[in-house]
Design a binder for these strands. Structure first.
Lengths: 215, 215
DNA sequence: GTCATTACTAGTACAGTGTGCTAGTCTCGC
DNA sequence: GCGAGACTAGCACACTGTACTAGTAATGAC
């Protein structure tokens, strides 16, 4: 019998499920473009693939759970407070929010490394299945931007004409996301200094475009 | 055509490369979301994976070649002629031009490689001196876009109010360039397939924004 | 108490993926 | 002839997701 150990450890101090989720989240933090392969997550969590598959029968289930967990933690920036400062034009506020997002992205030292690793991925064609983590996180970010756009657009439409028929906040958010991606990429390219001066102009054009979709 | 057969068949009636490409194109026609796995394409083309890999060392090369072949059906030069096709809305024409530019950029493997290597540079701070080539090429592209914008904007301002005070074509071109950069980058990231559907929407927002700078 | 049902863990097996590698064939220039 | 290079074929490796079985621990019924 021996029973030399494990008396308290026997009953999972942290549940296996928790360990799996936190391992997956850590991997996603290391590399947002990670595929979150079942085996890799299980190994990092220190459990077997069988255990993992008991809680998450399919990879999709795992990814959904991880993204949901991350989404639950999402804190609200102080930038958000500027969102409702109605003393300033809506476009200016949106530009501020975008500028803040851009600044955060550029300030992150590892951002460029992650972008590079994503681009250097061996098979970056990747089926949509493999891209699921990336897409899910992207959707999360876009949802936040879409929230800003919806708020500001409703407000703008309020003090002008009724307008804004069939306004598509998702398309606007996606558009703004693309603009930010472009700015981040350009900033990682040579000659960044001479381009930085144009950021505000570009952001203003983009913000104006999204907030004046009436017509 | 009496002699309907086989005289030239002895020596690869259709080159292996052609067969591979047409097989891949056929598979893409069957299912636009097909993954185009190396083995599946080789089997459908009736060649071995080794042969396929001789012509297309990597899956990326294969897909690029297929996309390029499909894209080649519609040459770019005629896009320019569409610039002055006043029967169509200016925004539509600008979207077409941008779409063509984007397509060319995506089909160009060396463009991706350059983007990757530029981002991989350890300290990409790089003085503006070193960045001279990059900036020169960029200026060239932006000048072309600025030309389009100027032409189309002048036309649009013509049939509406005088407007367009202090219109800045350079800022608009730079903005459009950033959008294109963003799209190219996103397309190199995982999940590109599911994002491609939004390209037109994003380009249309951008084009509209640039061409309606009056106020 | 015993015992059965359930929850969980571990590990293996299979089919599929991209890519590296070697060995063979074939054709062309000398 | 014959050597060099283009081409072809196929296997091996390291991955991937998932199905599957076997074993262990906890829980509840009786």
């Amino acid at each position: 019998m021996t029973e030399e150990v494990t008396v308290p450890e026997r009953q999972t101090p942290v549940s296996t499920r928790e360990r799996i989720l936190s391992a997956a989240a850590a991997m996603l933090a290391d590399d947002p473009a990670a595929t979150l392969s079942v085996r890799a997550v299980a190994q990092r969590a220190g459990v077997s693939t069988g255990s993992l598959r008991h809680f998450f029968p399919t990879q999709r289930d795992l990814i959904d759970a991880v993204v949901a967990a991350i989404a639950a933690i999402q804190p609200t920036d102080e930038l958000e407070s500027a969102l409702h400062d109605t003393t300033r034009p809506a476009v200016e506020r949106l530009v501020d929010l975008l500028r803040g997002t851009l600044r955060d992205a550029l300030a992150d030292e590892s951002a460029r490394a992650r972008l590079r690793s994503a681009l250097a991925a061996p098979s970056s064609i990747a089926t949509d299945e493999q891209a699921a983590p990336t897409l899910a996180l992207e959707r999360l970010a876009l949802r936040q931007i879409a929230g800003w756009v919806t708020t500001l657009h409703a407000e703008a439409a309020d003090d002008s004409d009724t307008g804004a028929l069939q306004f598509d906040a998702d398309a606007g958010a996606r558009f703004l996301g693309t603009v930010l991606t472009g700015l981040v990429t350009e900033q990682a390219l040579p000659g960044a200094l001479s381009r930085a001066a144009f950021h505000d102009g570009t952001l203003r054009i983009a913000a104006t475009a999204v907030l004046s979709t009436r017509r």
